[in-house]
């Protein structure tokens, strides 16, 4: 229990002393996770809607691949991205390995299937009915897209928040492609892993509490949005 009480005090101390390193780590974590979630959303929502609404040969196998990718092991993704970005890799000339850009790429690979999968399931369950309503009331293709987004907005938001949750809590991939370099690629999860390895459990737990606090804040926003959608009626 002392660990927890000490870490709680440490968490308060970390935040209230405005430690430059700690705030840098938090901001970099948010920047990397937010960027990868935005990219994954831009790719995942249209892809999920298309997969959910279109019938095509091989849809079954595509679906199974998508579900498999939703549980991709982060270390495997990290390794694959690191190989591609390494000097001898296909994208080695860009010199991105051990930079925040590499971390964004790795997280995007992890988050995109999650966003796509959640949107795909929502579109499969409700999309056809929404599309049919729009078409039979005289809507064109653009009207169908807007109506799908409006009707599935809570599902889309859940997809984005789940994706962000995956990104911000992920450690394996960012550790491999970022390298946990101080003031450069160190994020909350790699900071926790590093302090755990060094035996600084209070510091590790303190940053864990900050991570939990951010997660709670994001989920509170989602809950609030969900309540507002219900209150509209």
């Amino acid at each position: 229990m002392t660990y927890f009480s000490d870490s709680f005090k440490e968490a308060i101390s970390l935040l209230t002393t405005f430690d430059q390193e700690v705030y840098g780590i938090i901001l970099l974590s948010l920047f990397v996770s937010f960027s990868s979630t935005v990219i994954a959303t831009v790719m995942g929502i249209p892809l999920g809607l298309t997969l959910g609404l279109r019938s095509f040969r091989g849809k079954g196998i595509v679906t199974r691949i998508l579900y498999t990718m939703m549980s991709l092991p982060p270390v495997v993704v990290g390794l694959a991205v690191a190989i591609i970005l390494s000097r001898r890799g296909a994208l080695g000339s860009f010199r991105l390995l051990y930079t925040p850009a590499a971390m964004i790429i790795a997280q995007t690979v992890l988050v995109t299937p999650i966003v796509t999968g959640i949107v795909f399931n929502a579109a499969k369950a409700h999309g056809e009915g929404i599309k049919r309503v729009c078409r039979t009331l005289g809507g064109n293709a653009v009207d169908v897209i807007w109506l799908l987004i409006a009707e599935l907005r809570v599902n889309l938001l859940i997809a984005v928040v789940t994706g962000f949750g995956r990104a911000v809590s992920e450690v394996g991939a960012v550790m491999i492609v970022g390298g946990n370099i101080k003031y450069h690629t160190r994020v909350m999860t790699t900071y926790i892993a590093m302090n755990n390895g060094m035996g600084n459990y209070a510091k590790a737990l303190a940053m864990g509490l900050v991570l939990l606090g951010i997660s709670f804040l994001v989920n509170t926003l989602l809950y609030q949005f969900g309540m507002e959608v219900r209150d509209e009626h």
Partner: peptide
């Protein structure tokens, strides 16, 4: 297609008020 409409046995009503549902075809016009 704008001059034809179809109502199924189990129609899908939009996740909004009754008024907004009925107004929807007019809004897209």
């Amino acid at each position: 297609i704008k001059r034809i409409t179809y109502v199924s046995q189990t129609p899908y009503l939009l996740k909004r008020s009754v008024f907004e549902n009925v107004a929807y075809p007019l809004k897209i016009r």
